[in-house]
Design a binder for these strands. Structure first.
Lengths: 205, 205
DNA sequence: CCACGTGGCATAACGTTGTTATATGCATGT
DNA sequence: ACATGCATATAACAACGTTATGCCACGTGG
């Protein structure tokens, strides 16, 4: 049955935010298969046409979710980096925050990095938001380079390497390809090992 | 009637192979959105019912594609490792073969590692095939450990680290998050750097 | 050699999806 | 106060996965 909401006649921007928020909740709780426009409309107290007037089509809604997902990832990374004074510890905190964010909403992570929804391709504007979220990691590497705890290559290359390890490890964990015992420990260990090639002095445990 | 194992008849097995092959071609050329049962049926010269009698439902077809994808990945990795005598060069060849296989069929790669199709979850049997494909990398690391060019940790841990870097780098490249200039070079460089923490002696360039 | 029943495949139908077309109603500007 | 316009609700359409039904080609007992 349809729930007839009294149509609070909020501004369209608020409705757009509510739609993106409810779509994210729907995606997180039941996966991409449950994210249908009809369910989203009834859950948000509106009709499917709201998606078309506000986002053009379903792809537009997914693009908005993509953007907000990377915005929140970037914010999580920034706050995580700010909690640690030591540059190397800040990098580890960045990795853990990356993993926590991904595991907290695997389907959104799949939408952001994979092809979680069949025909979805992010536009260049959305990719710019993604690269902005990736920036705190580069900044953290720059801090390490400035502090002398890393050396050998440009900050962008080192950050890309760390991002690859983090993203790869998280993806394998989400896909169930990580051996059972304590994936979090394995992840942190891999993160630390990944930084070792660029650590000045090059000692390892 | 949960596990209805399809009885392997002679001509039916051929039709099953043709369906999986055509589905892979359809997925590779036009993506997951174009992989519909009606299109697959007409392209294979049969009807949609063939999928249901042979695989149960679309999920069963996807599971079969998942298995054959990992089978071919494992075969590609085995042959790549066999081309090189030097253990370290064999690891690099493994990484390049991994990247080539993924880039040759991105949608199949997404099906194998991500949530490319909304409701698809591989069963434990399929995951065993995936882990078997991952075995040549462990073997390559064992060769390096035996040759003395690597040290410090168990082979499974090192192989997992290398797999994470490879998988992460390829995933980022497929998602368009790699900076433009020469991703292949960046990939090989990351692969080499990933091995450095475990190289006995610990020198680096 | 023939009748028959079993099983795989084609055809058709059902519910649901994204999308589009039409109708309605609230809002605003003059 | 009236007309205009845009956002939304309702309804319809093509296509999807899936299920039900019918057909035909086998394999086996007489």
């Amino acid at each position: 049955m349809l729930t007839r909401v009294p149509a609070v006649k909020t501004h369209t921007a608020d409705l757009a935010a509510r739609l993106v928020d409810e779509a994210g909740r729907l995606l997180a709780r039941e996966g991409a298969a449950a994210l249908t426009l009809r369910r989203l409309a009834t859950a948000s107290g509106t009709s499917t046409m709201a998606v078309y007037t506000l986002f053009g089509d379903k792809q537009g809604l997914l693009r908005a979710m993509y953007r907000t997902g990377f915005d929140r990832l970037g914010a999580a990374l920034r706050t995580a980096a700010a909690t640690q004074d030591d540059p190397v510890e800040a990098l580890v905190a960045l990795g853990q925050a990356y993993r926590d964010t991904a595991l907290a909403n695997p389907h959104l992570y799949g939408l952001m990095f994979g092809t979680a929804v069949p025909g979805f391709v992010p536009d260049d504007d959305a990719k710019a938001v993604a690269d902005a979220a990736y920036e705190p990691l580069v900044e953290g590497v720059r801090r390490c380079l400035h502090a002398g705890t890393m050396a050998g290559t440009a900050a962008e290359r080192i950050a890309l390497h760390l991002w690859s390890v983090s993203h790869g490890m998280v993806s394998l964990e989400l896909a169930g390809h990580l051996p059972a015992p304590d994936p979090a420990t394995a992840y942190v260990e891999a993160m630390v090992y990944a930084g070792i090639p660029f650590v000045a002095g090059g000692e390892r445990g």
